[in-house]
Simulated assay, not measured.
Amino acid sequence: MSAPVPPELPLPPTARRLAYAGLLPFVLGALLVWLVNDTAHPYVTLALSAYAALIVSFLGGIHWGVGFAQADPPTSLFLWGVLPSLLAWVAVMMPPNAGLALNGALLVLCYLVDRKVYPAQGLARWLTLRFRLSAVAALSCFLGAAGT
């Protein structure tokens, strides 16, 4: 395994730009929930909920990637890595107001778990970006839920 990255090392610019670009579907989706007509509304809420579920699943998958890089990883990385996907899938199947609220809560929960896990895994330098992304994404889900 390679040496841990110093926490003060800046994040790769490409990763930072792509991460912020990944907020566009959240912000646009939340805005459209409030602007589209009744015919388009179910599609917009489903699109926002499905995108949120994909991101929640991605956040869980990061834990699998961290575990893959270790000779003897803690089982908790793999257990937690699966749970967000399962819960996000349930959220997509729920009515939009409840599903978007659940996905928003899952985004917050993923961040709270990562606040504990990332420092122990040498990933603390990603937490500021994770907070910003999670805050905007969760707020978008909550605003989308309020607009249903």
Rank of each mutant, 00 (worst) to 15 (best):
P25G: 00
G99C: 04
G81V: 06
P25V: 12
P4W: 01
R132K: 14
W126K: 13
A71N: 11
G144C: 07
P4C: 11
G144I: 10
L77T: 00
V117D: 02
L109D: 01
Y118H: 08
I62H: 03
C141V: 03
R132S: 05
G29A: 11
S140E: 02
S140K: 07
L102W: 03
G65S: 01
N103C: 04
A71I: 14
L112H: 04
M93G: 15
A98Q: 12
K116H: 14
F26P: 02
L54C: 08
V66E: 10
L129E: 00
V92E: 01
A15C: 03
Y43F: 10
A88C: 08
L77P: 04
A145N: 07
P6W: 09
A15L: 14
G81H: 00
L24C: 05
G61D: 04
S57L: 04
L54A: 11
T45Q: 07
V44I: 13
L106Q: 02
S49H: 12
Y20T: 06
N103W: 04
L87H: 00
L18D: 05
V44N: 11
L9R: 12
T39Q: 13
L102Q: 01
L100W: 00
D114N: 09
P95K: 09
S134N: 03
G144L: 04
L123W: 02
N37K: 10
V117S: 13
K116C: 14
V92W: 02
W64M: 06
A105I: 14
A21K: 00
L133P: 01
F68H: 12
P10T: 03
V66Q: 14
V108H: 00
P10Q: 03
F142C: 05
T128I: 10
R125S: 02
E8V: 04
T75W: 07
G22D: 01
Y43R: 15
L106Y: 03
G22I: 04
A3W: 06
H41S: 15
A71T: 06
L107C: 06
Y51K: 08
L127E: 11
A146G: 14
L48S: 02
M1A: 09
Y111I: 09
L48I: 08
A137E: 00
S134C: 01
G122K: 07
A135C: 03
A40N: 09
S140C: 11
C141Y: 12
A69G: 12
P4L: 11
W126M: 06
F58G: 13
N37S: 15
G67A: 09
L31I: 06
A101E: 03
G147C: 15
L9I: 06
G60F: 05
L133M: 09
E8N: 13
